[in-house]
């Protein structure tokens, strides 16, 4: 948000990410309902509206809302089936929850004046850690010690294997970091850029360019919102595949 105070321009591209209590002006305790709470709930409601209300008709020939719900269902279902295989479908509800949550959080964040929950490293970090821990636990429960084959690449020459193992271990533990920072970073960057361009709209001389740039960025961000949710989900499926079939 930019305000021209006393003839000066002030840019606050990061103010949109500030966590504030919804009621009053006190400190933010762990239970305080904040703007994060509000937009998390709106995200969940949007996902539920599409998947539950949209399929209310249970029609053989679907209407538009039901088609969207079935499309989302089919997209994630096929993704898991293709990447993680048939036994990955047990975890389909969680992966779909993840996808629906991220895609709606990203898209709702693009509503003017909205708060983008996925722009916060705390949120994406928990999402990524949930995937990382879940996948690791599944890997050990399903395969026991054989899960460690993931790091010991038998197709490589014996001399190279320890080096590869070190690299594999590092890349394994970097996964939650890259997952969370990729998502939050994309969201922060896009929204901040839009805010900066919007700030320039206060100067009459560059206003048309700024507004066109905002429109362009906005369209791009809609794409990014979907693509990032897709990437997060597809990587979750890849990690799930590693957990279920570590020897591949």
């Amino acid at each position: 948000m930019a305000t021209a105070t006393g003839g000066g321009l002030e840019f606050h591209p990061m103010d949109q990410f500030v966590v504030r209590p919804l009621f009053g002006d006190g400190a933010v305790a762990w239970y305080t309902p904040t703007n994060v709470t509000l937009w998390l709930f709106l995200t969940a409601l949007a996902a539920i509206a599409v998947l539950v209300l949209g399929t209310r008709g249970r029609a053989i020939v679907p209407n538009r809302a039901q088609s969207v719900a079935e499309l989302a269902y089919g997209l994630v279902y096929k993704m898991i089936e293709d990447i993680a295989g048939k036994d990955g479908l047990r975890y389909f509800p969680y992966v779909l929850t993840l996808f629906m949550f991220i895609v709606f959080a990203n898209l709702l964040g693009l509503v003017p004046m909205a708060f983008t929950v996925t722009s916060h490293i705390a949120v994406t970090g928990i999402l990524a850690m949930a995937v990382f821990l879940g996948v690791t636990i599944i890997g050990f429960v399903k395969n026991g010690a054989h899960f460690l084959d993931l790091f010991w690449i038998r197709s490589a020459p014996l001399a190279v294997r320890p080096i590869l193992a070190v690299i594999e271990v590092i890349s394994y533990f970097v996964r939650p970091l890259s997952l969370s920072i990729r998502l939050a970073g994309n969201m922060i960057a896009g929204h901040a850029v839009i805010k900066v361009f919007a700030g320039f709209a206060a100067i009459a001389a560059v206003a048309p360019v700024a507004i066109i740039a905002v429109v362009g960025m906005y369209a791009f961000e809609v794409l990014v919102a979907f693509v990032q949710a897709y990437v997060f989900t597809i990587l979750t499926c890849v990690y799930l595949k590693d957990a279920l079939h570590p020897s591949h």
């Binding site: 762990w30 305080t32 539920i48 998947l51 539950v52 679907p62 509800p93 969680y94 929850t97 949550f101």
Partner: peptide
């Protein structure tokens, strides 16, 4: 702490609603 708490609440609610209501329904329709 605040964000994590509300995120976990939201995710659990969303997971329960989707896995109990939405997914069986869509699977049945399909």
């Amino acid at each position: 702490g605040n964000q994590i708490f509300w995120l976990v609440v939201t995710l659990v609610v969303l997971y329960l609603v989707l896995s109990r209501v939405a997914l069986p329904r869509i699977a049945a329709v399909l």
